[in-house]
Deep mutational scan, measured.
Amino acid sequence: KVKIAGPGLGSGVRARVLQSFTVDSSKAGLAPLEVRVLGPRGLVEPVNVVDNGDGTHTVTYTPSQEGPYMVSVKYADEEIPRSPFKVKVL
């Protein structure tokens, strides 16, 4: 029921550039959304989540370095389908 889309989860994500993606939970009811961005060697990146007021949230983060990242998206305390997402930061 929760959908996710945006360039911040795709290929070609650049280090030190603001990345974003949208989480659409409009068909999933009200529940807490939790997003974690883990970088190389367990680095935890700050994440900004904005409630758009229409059942969607815009998530932004800036990867601080190149390497493999994991983006975990939980809704109602459960990983959404395909989460955690593997993101290769260049």
Score class of each variant (00 low, 15 high):
A31E: 14
I80Y: 03
K74A: 05
R16Q: 12
F85G: 01
Q65I: 13
E34A: 14
V17W: 05
T22E: 08
T56D: 04
P63F: 02
A31C: 10
Q19K: 02
V89F: 03
V49I: 12
K27C: 11
S64C: 11
D51M: 10
A5N: 10
P84Q: 03
V37G: 00
D24P: 01
E34Y: 09
V17L: 08
Q65E: 13
V87R: 02
G10I: 07
G53W: 09
R41M: 14
A76L: 05
D24V: 03
D77G: 14
Y69D: 00
G10T: 09
L18W: 04
V17G: 04
T62L: 09
G53M: 10
A28Q: 05
T22F: 07
A28K: 03
P46R: 09
S64N: 09
I80E: 02
R36V: 12
V37W: 02
P68K: 15
L18D: 08
G12M: 14
E78N: 08
P68E: 15
R14E: 14
T22M: 10
E45M: 07
Y69I: 06
R16C: 09
A15C: 12
T58C: 09
E66F: 09
I80Q: 02
P7E: 10
D54Q: 09
Y61F: 05
N52P: 01
K88W: 08
G12I: 13
E79C: 06
P68N: 14
P63G: 01
P68Y: 15
Q65P: 00
P84A: 01
F85S: 03
L43D: 11
L33V: 11
N48V: 10
M70K: 10
A15Y: 07
S26N: 06
D54W: 06
A28D: 04
A76W: 05
L43P: 06
R41V: 08
L9A: 03
E78C: 10
V13A: 07
G12C: 12
T58Y: 13
P40N: 04
R41K: 14
P81I: 05
G53T: 10
D51V: 08
K1V: 05
R36Y: 08
Q19E: 02
V59N: 00
P81H: 06
L9M: 05
A31K: 09
R36Q: 08
E66L: 09
P46T: 10
P63L: 00
S83R: 01
T58R: 12
K86T: 14
S20Y: 14
L9E: 02
G39H: 02
K3F: 15
Q65M: 14
E45G: 03
Y69V: 04
G12E: 15
Y69C: 04
K3I: 15
D54F: 07
D51K: 14
V35L: 04
N48C: 11
D24H: 04
S25R: 07
V37H: 00
L90K: 13
G8N: 04
H57W: 10
P7K: 07
G12T: 13
P81N: 08
V49S: 08
G12K: 10
V49P: 02
V2G: 02
F21Q: 01
G10N: 11
G6A: 04
S11I: 14
I4D: 03
T56N: 09
R14S: 12
T60S: 11
P40C: 04
L33T: 03
A15N: 04
Y61N: 00
P40E: 07
E66A: 13
K27D: 14
S83Q: 02
S20H: 13
G10S: 08
S25N: 05
V2R: 02
D51G: 12
V59K: 02
V17I: 14
G42T: 05
D77A: 09
A76G: 13
A76H: 14
G29I: 08
K3D: 09
A76Q: 10
P46V: 07
I4P: 00
F21E: 00
V13Y: 02
S20A: 09
P32Y: 08
P7R: 07
N48S: 13
K86Q: 15
P68M: 14
S83F: 02
Q19S: 06
G39S: 11
T22I: 15
L90T: 10
E34D: 14
V44L: 11
K27F: 06
K88C: 14
S83T: 03
Y61E: 01
L90D: 15
L43Q: 11
G12Q: 13
E78I: 10
E34Q: 14
Y61M: 00
K27S: 14
M70A: 12
V35W: 00
N52R: 10
S20P: 03
G29T: 08
V44T: 15
E66P: 15
G10M: 11
N48T: 13
K86C: 14
Y61I: 03
V87Y: 05
D77H: 14
E34V: 13
S11W: 07
V23C: 05
T58D: 10
G67T: 02
G55N: 09
A28R: 03
K3H: 12
V44Q: 13
G39D: 13
A5V: 15
G67Y: 00
T56F: 10
T62H: 04
S20Q: 11
V49L: 11
E66W: 10
F85R: 06
P46I: 05
A15M: 11
D54C: 08
V73M: 02
R14L: 10
P84I: 04
A5L: 13
Y75C: 06
V59H: 04
I4C: 13
V37L: 08
V73A: 03
G12F: 12
Y75H: 06
T60I: 06
G12N: 15
F85C: 06
K27V: 09
E34N: 07
R41S: 12
P40G: 03
R82Y: 15
T60K: 09
K86Y: 14
I80H: 12
V50L: 11
S26F: 04
N52Q: 13
S72V: 07
V37D: 00
P32N: 13
R82G: 13
P81T: 07
V87D: 02
G8V: 03
P7S: 10
A15D: 04
G53S: 12
G67K: 00
V87P: 01
H57E: 03
G8D: 04
V35M: 03
K88H: 15
V73N: 01
L43F: 10
S72L: 03
G39L: 01
V89P: 04
P84R: 02
Q65F: 10
P40R: 04
V49C: 12
L38M: 13
N48K: 15
V89S: 12
L30I: 14
G39W: 01
S11C: 08
K74R: 11
N48H: 08
D51T: 12
F85M: 09
L9G: 02
V23I: 11
P68D: 14
T60Q: 14
A15V: 13
F85L: 09
K74S: 06
D54M: 09
P81R: 06
G53V: 09
Q19G: 01
R16V: 03
P68C: 15
V59I: 07
L9V: 07
V2D: 03
T62Y: 08
V89M: 03
S72N: 09
R14F: 12
K1Q: 09
A76S: 10
A15L: 08
G8M: 03
T62P: 02
K74P: 01
V49Y: 07
N48F: 12
I80C: 13
L43E: 14
S26G: 09
G67N: 01
P84S: 02
T56Y: 09
F21Y: 00
V17D: 07
A31R: 06
V50M: 09
K86V: 12
V35C: 10
E78S: 08
P7W: 05
N48A: 10
L30S: 12
V17M: 14
R16K: 10
T58W: 09
L33C: 06
T60A: 07
R36A: 12
S25M: 15
A76R: 10
